[in-house]
């Protein structure tokens, strides 16, 4: 009975409860990164901040773009644009599993009625040169989160180790709200004067982007964008650390990393357009990884990474 009372009523309420919960656990609540990324992990708050020795705790929602997953809004749970909720804590606290379970309670999962399981699932991101061990978390057979202890990012050992939690927000919310098609899910309070569903907010954009991703985006332009981002990233990192104008030491790890993010997204778009062969695919992934690695190396020389 507690479950009924405690149950959130809409998508945004679940997001807001997660924000409140992780804020209460001491995380800095960040906003989404203002660039197109494929997953919450790409946010520099995770990729770069998981490097180096400085403690870090942050949580944020991140719109994630997966051009190949576009289904014109017709598939009940596949979207080319969806939200990941991301928590990153360095070093990983000993009670991270308990904290995570607390977050499920906070969004209305009654631990006495459900079957929660931690099922082996190792995580790897070839474009980030990153991997970690952990689980996918099951609630009654449904995967509701990814739980990972980062071991390496950009090819470097994570010391200390960060704990990363990723919630696929739409899927989790559909489960909690008992909705079968994502587009039918209440976005705001269903009793609000202007009640909006997820479809009211996103159906049209799913259609527009699906068409653009698959059939319209100019691949020649994308290929050029990829090259440009790659070149700019290298150019930024080639600058001397000492800024001649301010006389300060300013390593531009983040602007360079933005270019790596850009290259990665352009690659995803090219992939969705089907213009990348299997062999080329590996080569592109290798090029993005090289960019990430160079940015991470630069970041390691900065204060945020704990360098003097």
């Amino acid at each position: 009975m507690t479950e009924a009372i405690n149950k959130p009523r809409c998508f945004q309420e679940i997001l807001m409860r997660l924000q409140a919960y992780w804020a209460a656990q001491g995380c800095a609540i960040l906003q989404p990164y203002d660039m197109e990324v494929g997953a919450g992990t790409f946010h520099p708050a995770t990729t770069l901040r998981s490097l180096g020795s400085k403690p870090w705790a942050a949580a944020y929602a991140q719109p994630s773009r997966r051009p190949t997953d576009g289904r014109y809004g017709e598939n009940p749970n596949r979207l080319q644009h969806y939200y990941q909720y991301q928590v990153i804590i360095k070093p990983s606290p000993p009670d991270l599993q308990a904290l995570y379970l607390g977050s499920l309670v906070a969004i209305g999962v009654d631990m006495d009625l459900h079957d929660i399981r931690f099922v082996e699932d190792d995580w790897e991101s070839p474009t980030l040169g990153a991997w970690g061990l952990g689980w996918e978390v099951w609630c009654d057979g449904m995967e509701v989160s990814q739980f990972t202890y980062f071991q390496q990012v950009a090819g470097m050992d994570c010391k200390p180790v960060s704990g990363e939690l990723t919630y696929g927000l739409e899927r989790l919310a559909m489960y909690i709200l008992g909705v079968d098609h994502v587009m039918d899910m209440p976005f705001n309070d269903p009793d609000a004067p202007i009640a909006l569903t997820y479809g009211d907010v996103f159906l049209q954009t799913e259609q527009e982007y699906s068409r653009w991703n698959f059939d319209v985006v100019d691949t020649d332009m994308l290929l050029k964008h990829f090259e440009d981002a790659e070149a700019e990233c290298a150019r930024i990192l080639a600058q001397l650390a000492d800024d001649p104008k301010t006389g300060r030491k300013i390593i531009m790890a983040h602007p360079a990393y933005d270019q790596a993010i850009k290259a990665s997204h352009v690659f995803n778009l090219l992939d969705a357009r089907g213009v990348i062969s299997v062999t080329e695919r590996q080569a592109y992934i290798g090029r993005v990884r090289a960019l990430t690695k160079a940015c991470a190396d630069a970041f390691m020389l900065t204060k945020a990474a704990g360098a003097a």
Binding site: P91, S92, P93, P94, D122, G132, L133, G134, Y149, Q151, C158, K159, P160, V161, G163
Partner: peptide, 18 residues
């Protein structure tokens, strides 16, 4: 077959040892 570190420690185990 695969082990990991966690937190600030250097010990390796399959998942954090409590």
């Amino acid at each position: 077959p695969k082990s990991m570190r966690w937190g600030t420690g250097s010990l390796r185990w399959v998942r954090p040892l409590h």
